[in-house]
Every structure is written in structure tokens, then in C-alpha cells.
Design a protein around this nucleic acid. Sequence first.
DNA 1: CCAAAATGTCTATTAATATAGACAACCATA
DNA 2: TATGGTTGTCTATATTAATAGACATTTTGG
Lengths: 246, 246
Amino acid sequence: MDTGQINVQRQNGVALWRQIADRIRASIANGDYDATGKVPPEFTLAAQFGVNRHTVRSALQALAQEGIVRSVQGRGTLIERKERLNFPITKRTRFSEGIGDQAREKEGLLLHSAEEPASADLAARLGIGEGAPVIRLETLRKADRRPVSRSTTWFPAERFAGIETAYRDSGSITLAFRAVGLADYLRVSTEVTAIHADGADLADLQLSPGAIILVTKALNTDPDGVPVQYAVTRFPADMVQFTIEN
Amino acid sequence: MDTGQINVQRQNGVALWRQIADRIRASIANGDYDATGKVPPEFTLAAQFGVNRHTVRSALQALAQEGIVRSVQGRGTLIERKERLNFPITKRTRFSEGIGDQAREKEGLLLHSAEEPASADLAARLGIGEGAPVIRLETLRKADRRPVSRSTTWFPAERFAGIETAYRDSGSITLAFRAVGLADYLRVSTEVTAIHADGADLADLQLSPGAIILVTKALNTDPDGVPVQYAVTRFPADMVQFTIEN
DNA sequence: CCAAAATGTCTATTAATATAGACAACCATA
DNA sequence: TATGGTTGTCTATATTAATAGACATTTTGG
């Protein structure tokens, strides 16, 4: 660890307290403070970042708001949560199995469902005709009661009629597929990008403004290679990482 | 496209002009303005985002600084650059082949090299003893003269003596491996996370503050499964995306 | 129980961000 | 060449972010 001055930028459109909050959040996720279970004292942090103690306090208040730390007068600022869920991306990627035992409670909520005609882009990805009916599900997944992903996912409507109720009842894509007659499916491609969270992300994923979102666009097929699902999923970047094993 | 009000947040630590700059940058990368080759007029953008025209101007000035747009009095704000490089991640991931013909000029620069003892974490990943000598290379890769990645990469020192000069001369990991006697290698795992750019990123990758960085941690082995390279690479998120094909 | 080490709260000041309006300069084109 | 649409520049003001210092309050440990 470099104990010297830590670099923060001024007048760049990102407030100092937010830059510092992001750094501290990363350090916590990185396990830098595991020895003590506490963030260094405000005075020390202020010196490290070369800012006023009040600025550090703003950063810590933001992290407290996120539930990552909790300040206790006289004791210090305690780390409440530091996990970063790992999602393996493989031929057999499944959300709930991916979490595995990284979380005790797993939930899949159906926010909304609709049947609609496929756009040109979607039709191409699913290998169906443009305008063919598709079922769209809007889902929110949680681990230990914290939102970890927000998906929009499409299925060919004819083949998978009723998958919305199957998902609503089971909270699992794998089980929903099984309920409508598909025993197995494979992940054939995943695109990963990163963006800043927008207003909807902040609300859905209970994030603080300025947060980073990892976006995946995934295509699943049946064992014969016929596309069965296309999904766009948004994850809070500070809570997850992806692992690709070849 | 939603022509109504676009959501921006106030008092969240990220200045309005930066949020707007990020949105416009994303819209450009998304091809939203391809029909005209121009960003909508300042007046229109101000109305869309619900802010003053001066605030939009700050955003556009930031994008002009990045070389993404160019404002011309009387004409409008022209789009100068909108590419987003795609990097396939597969068993045979190679940087230069991955870029393929997405860029005309490709460069790999050696910024620094050193021999050092392996940390516990690194030793575990490379399957060598803790403290065993490793060669560390700091590299910067460019496509069409724009920086697209900044890597720190380690090799077992005994097996790959001289790889730093081989890399410096060739600008390619694949060729450098070949020069020191390794004809082929495989990507066995890749971890992907996203963070905010720090000061070093801003300098190395010529980014504007507040930018998002995609971080990959990759392990390569020889055909027999013996680890040969571990690399941590940082990409500007607005310039790249990853594709995982299974 | 006392002292050291933390966080909590308050006031005051300066610098940066955002809004508002007016008008000049420039370009394309009808 | 006149006009409408667009960016450039200027002044003024309000709000938010950051600094600075002082002191209160709480916990931990000797």
C-alpha cells in the first residue's frame, strides 16, 4: 500500500466527496481494511486524500447511506458490508446457481410482463421474423434482500407461452423454462459493457447517484442451438464481478 | 426514442454538465445521431435535459476536449468519433487479433519492465512459489493512436527470460511469447469489473475525469495448462465492449 | 476514572456550479 | 442577399461544494 498522497481531481465535474467515497468503497471491497473491520479515522483519510475532514465526512455519509459503513461516535467508522458477488459466465450460466452459496436468500421478482412484436434487432438475435410475437419479462433479482440485477428478457411467444406465470411462481428462469417444456439451455454469447447508472437504475437497484452499472446482453439457446432467450441485464458494478472460464 | 424529459440528478456529487456529457457520449456511441452526424442544437438538448443552455455547453465543451465532437459556429456540433471497439473473450483471446480490422493502426508500447518477487496472490495464480522471480511489464496499447488499454502483466521469470525486450521490439504478447519459445497459449479465466477512473488512468488513457474503467484480470496458460501469464488490464468503458462466445 | 482517540455539530468564508438573459457572430439555403 | 437557425461571449446572481477552525460528545483502554 502506498501511504502517500492519494490522487483526487478537482473541478472535473465529480465532487471530491464522491470520488473519495468511490475510492473508499473500492478499498473496502478489496479487503484493504479487513484487519480492523474499520475504515481509517476521518483525520487520517483527510490527510491521505489531501482534503478537509468535512469532505471525508461527506464521503462517509454517502457510504453510510448505501449501507456499506456505519459511523459510531468515539469508536470509528465500521464496515457493514463488503461483498462483491462473483458471477461465472460459462456455457451453462445460470443466475441462481452462479450465486451459489455466496448469498443465503435468493429472490427473483417479476416486475412486469407483456407480449409484443419483435423489433428488427431482437428478431435477428432470436432468429425469428421481424414483428413475430415475443414475451418480455422485466425482472429484479435479489441476494440477501439486496437488489443485484435488473433484467429485461425476451422469449419467442409461441414456443414459451405461459413462461411469465412460470417465472412469477418460481422466481427462476431455469425453473420457468422447465415448466414450459425446456429441460436445458446453453449460453452462447454475452456482451459486457459499463455505463453510469441512470434514474431508473438508481430506483430499481437502490443505488446512490454516480454509481456504475455493468450491462450484459446475453443469448441463450436450446441444446440444438435454437435461440430461446435474449436478455439485457444491469448489475451494480460495486457489488458484482464476472468470471469467464474457458 | 423518448422525446420527453431526460433524467439527470442534482446534488449527487456529479455535476450536471458531466452527467449530460456522459449521456451524450453514450448516445453518440449508440448511433442515435447517425442520421445527421450532428448532436442536436444546444437549445434542444437544454430542453431535453431540463437545464440551462450554458450547462449543456459545458458538457459539449468536455466532449470536444475528448475529441468526440467539434462545435462550429452557425452550423452545429459535429460528431468526430463514435467507435466502440469490441473485444471477443475466448479460449484464444489475443489483443491484436481481437481488434482485427476495427482499427487500422495498432501499437503496443512497453512503458516499464522489472523483475521482482511474486506476491502471495500472484504466486497462487501463476502456480509458483511465493517470492519466486517474476517479470512485470507495464504496457499501453493503442488503436489508431488512441489508448485503448493499460496493462500490468506478470510472467514467471525463469521460463520467459528476455520477454521484456521481445515485447518492446514486437509490441505484441503473442509475438513476444513466440520469441522466447512459447508457440501457443490459452486464456483460461477472465474476471471483469468496472470502477471509476483514477488519476493514473486519466493520464495513461487520456480520459476525462469521471470516466468509467473496465478492469479485466486474465490468466493464460500454455497448451499443457501451466500458467504462463497473469495480466490486469484497464480499458476505457466508453471505447470498448467485451463479447464472450461459448 | 481519566486521557486519548474518535465522531458529531456549529459558524464563517471561499470557490465552483448552475441559472438567466441579452446579443454578437457565423453558416446554410431559399 | 436576406433570413432563420445555430454557436460564441458577456454580465449578473443564486446555489452547492469545499475549506477552516473550534469545541462537544462518545467510546476505548490504561
